[in-house]
Design a binder for these strands. Structure first.
Length: 156
DNA sequence: GCCAACGTTGGC
DNA sequence: GCCAACGTTGGC
């Protein structure tokens, strides 16, 4: 099975690429959208992941992570004290899943969303679709490589 | 199954 | 803080 490419969103106030660099790896818990969950479950060990910072000024792609553990039940769903608590999910019948991701690379500075929007090469990318809110999404290899090249390039 | 009301995401 | 674009809930 060929390696696949993804993008995940995080508010850096909650968890940033700097946090991932410090921690080395983390649980990607708290996904509570069925489409996003289904993509999580398709992730394979070794797949590469663009790490996107949302709700920043500007938002942008901050670096690269990789899948280090494939999907397994998200225990925060049945923790009443968790922000992600969902009583409909139980250990016997889990509804929500998470993966573990590892740190790969932090760009010198995030690739800002306005720059991504200028790229003809990124036409059709889910992230750039108007109104797109999906927090876990597949990315084509071509789009992934283009974003990484922008991330590594010296800007300004 | 329809759809109004409501809640959330996330750019601006 | 505003609001567009969703997704979910629940009455019918």
């Amino acid at each position: 099975m060929a390696k696949r490419y993804w993008l995940v969103k995080s508010e850096p106030d909650v968890y940033s690429i700097e946090d991932l660099e410090r921690d080395g790896r983390t649980h990607w818990e708290g996904v509570r959208n069925y489409q996003a969950r289904n993509f999580l479950r398709e992730m394979k060990r070794g797949d590469r992941v663009l790490f996107y910072h949302s709700s920043t000024t500007p938002p942008g792609v901050a670096g690269i992570a990789e899948v280090v553990r494939e999907a397994y039940p998200d225990p925060t769903a049945w923790d009443p004290k968790s922000d992600y608590h969902d009583p409909a999910s139980t250990p016997e019948n889990p509804r929500w899943f998470m993966v573990d991701v590892g740190f790969v690379e932090r760009f010198p500075e995030p690739v800002p969303l306005p720059l991504l929007k200028e790229q003809e090469a990124l036409e059709g990318m889910e992230l750039l679709r108007k109104g797109s809110r999906l927090s876990v999404q597949p990315v084509s290899k071509e789009h992934f490589d283009h974003v990484v090249a922008l991330g590594r390039r010296k800007r300004r």
